[in-house]
């Protein structure tokens, strides 16, 4: 029995399959894929459990969970649950299930985790401002030729390349 993790798919094959999944979503639902919208909804849900009045008073939160609205009653939330299960399934079949931290050789685990938290926070903030993340904007908007999504994509990659030099120790 081989316990080595399987290889990843070729990027072009993975892209092709991903494109078909996206196309199927368009054909069946008339909408695209997403991720950060569902994360936003779980934040609103959590805050709503603690202080519902706060949700109703904040114009941004109210949009998702104001009044009797259940922020989790949404297409994207179910889609993202599927994403987690799908990822788990693939990891299981490819023997990649393992608690570990990905990082470059020149940074400590603690340092990497601190940066992951920081980067996540920056990304979370930016994703809400940009009305979506890589899945919702770049992928979905890219395929439908949405103008703003293409502008978003270009700026995101440009900004990533511009800043990459300064955090190179984390990765290489």
């Amino acid at each position: 029995m081989n316990s080595q993790p399987e290889k990843y798919w070729s990027p072009y094959l993975a892209g092709f399959v991903l494109g078909l999944v996206l196309l199927a979503t368009f054909v069946i639902m008339g909408r695209g894929l997403g991720a950060s919208g569902a994360m936003m909804r779980s934040v609103v849900y959590a805050v709503d459990q603690v202080t519902p009045a706060h949700i109703d008073n904040n114009p941004y939160f109210a949009k998702y969970g104001g009044g009797d609205k259940n922020p989790l009653d949404n297409w994207l939330v179910y889609e993202v649950l599927g994403v987690i299960v799908g990822g788990l399934l693939s990891g299981l079949l490819a023997k990649r299930l393992k608690f570990k931290t990905d990082k470059g050789p020149r940074i400590s685990v603690k340092g990497r985790l601190a940066l992951a938290l920081t980067g996540g926070a920056i990304m979370g903030f930016g994703a809400r401002l940009a009305l979506g993340c890589t899945s919702g904007q770049a992928l979905t908007g890219g395929a439908t030729l949405a103008l703003g999504s293409w502008a978003f994509m270009m700026v995101m990659f440009a900004s990533g390349y511009a800043i990459a030099y300064f955090v190179r120790k984390q990765w290489i």
Binding site: R31, G32, G34, D73, L131, G136, G141
Partner: peptide
């Protein structure tokens, strides 16, 4: 139907 959110993501 539920009204869809503004965001696609």
């Amino acid at each position: 139907r539920k009204k869809k959110g503004e965001e696609g993501c």
